[in-house]
Amino acid sequence: MEETTVEIIKTSGEKVKFSMEKLRSSLKHSGADDKLVQQIVDTVRDELYQGISTKEIYNRAFVLLKKKKSVFASKYKLKKAIYELGPTGFPFENFVAAILEYSGYQTEVGKIMSGICVSHEIDVFAEKNGNVRIIECKFHGDEGRNCNVKVPLYINSRYEDVKQQWEKRSDTSKNRVGGGVVTNTRFTKDALAYGKCVGLHLLSWDYPEKNGLKDRIDRLGLYPITVSQLLTEREKQFLLSRDVVLCRQLLKDRFFLDHLGISAIRKEKIVKEVEVLCRS
């Protein structure tokens, strides 16, 4: 069945032509070799039908990857794993802060900063080499909800209020201050246009191109603990409540696994899984 003949339904309800190349690309992103990728593409293609949902396609590919190697499945489910950081946005804020820290920034989550008009709670305050970033995180718990232009409009007004107050302080006059928005979904065209126009740093699942959230996570091996195939949902929520959001953090704070009463054998398997993800 040719890919141009099948219409699939996205989470948003939109109908699009199925792209074999997009499926192949996402599978390669998991670390699977060309032979395995082709096997899965062939299997999924044979099971396609008009009106199949992207979720069904994802689930089928995920199962096939997991049968072969769990670490491939973990990387493939990255986008879903970030949604699982919810239902509140706080773990996502910690996740963004952790990514920035591994890029050399000092961060603070939930910092209260005075503006010219009012005080604001900043999701992530980040500082590196005299550069200060005031970052707001827009977390969506379900697919299909993108950040429209209202988001950078609102955030830019808050940023400008804080920036004006910041620049009045003599002890911070040498710092270069920038505002930013990070989301786990995507920005609309108008949101991108406005954000770029006013100079906001924008980061989404796939923006900037080749340097979006998914690219940075893969490049730096900064996977959220929610990608784990061995931890239960209860265990993941326990770790998130202790601000352990990255697999790398779990390697440092593996004593939390003892608090959960995890057996030595299972603990060894979890640590091995996490180590492979961090190396990949």
Rank of each mutant, 00 (worst) to 15 (best):
K75F: 09
V37H: 03
D34E: 10
V41E: 03
K69P: 02
L27S: 02
K69I: 02
R45H: 11
T54A: 07
V37E: 04
V44F: 07
R60F: 05
K35C: 03
Y58T: 07
T43Q: 14
I57C: 05
S74H: 02
D42M: 09
G31A: 04
L27P: 08
K35A: 12
Q39I: 14
K77F: 00
E56K: 10
K69E: 15
K69S: 14
F62H: 12
Y49K: 09
I57W: 06
V44M: 00
K77N: 10
L27T: 06
H29Q: 13
Q50C: 02
A81M: 03
A32T: 02
S70T: 15
V63G: 04
H29F: 15
T43S: 11
Q38N: 14
L36Y: 12
K68P: 01
D46K: 14
D46S: 15
A32Q: 02
L36S: 06
K35D: 13
A81I: 06
F72M: 09
K77S: 14
I52P: 05
V44D: 04
K77T: 01
V44H: 01
K79I: 03
D34G: 14
R60Q: 13
K75R: 15
G31P: 05
K28Y: 07
L78H: 11
L78E: 04
Y76V: 10
I40H: 03
T54G: 01
K77R: 10
S30A: 10
E56Q: 08
K55S: 08
Q39F: 04
K68C: 13
K68Y: 12
D34K: 08
L78M: 15
V44W: 01
L27W: 05
I57N: 01
L36H: 11
Q39W: 06
L64D: 04
K79H: 15
S53E: 00
E56R: 07
I40R: 06
V37Q: 04
K80D: 11
H29Y: 14
A61W: 00
Y58L: 10
K75N: 15
I57T: 03
T43C: 08
K35Q: 13
K66Y: 00
K66E: 05
V37R: 01
E56S: 11
D46M: 12
T43D: 12
S70V: 15
K35M: 09
D42L: 08
T54N: 04
A81N: 03
K67S: 10
K55I: 06
K67D: 06
V41A: 11
N59T: 12
Q39K: 10
K66L: 05
R60C: 10
E56D: 12
R60W: 13
Q38I: 05
A73K: 07
L48I: 09
G31L: 04
Y49W: 08
A73N: 02
L48H: 05
S74L: 11
T43I: 06
K69W: 13
L64W: 02
T43A: 11
K77H: 04
K28D: 10
L78R: 08
Y76M: 07
Q38K: 14
K35N: 13
Y58A: 11
H29R: 12
Y49S: 02
G31I: 07
Q39M: 13
K79Q: 15
T43M: 06
A81F: 00
Q38G: 00
H29N: 11
A61C: 12
K66V: 04
I40D: 03
Y49L: 01
K68A: 11
D33G: 09
I57G: 01
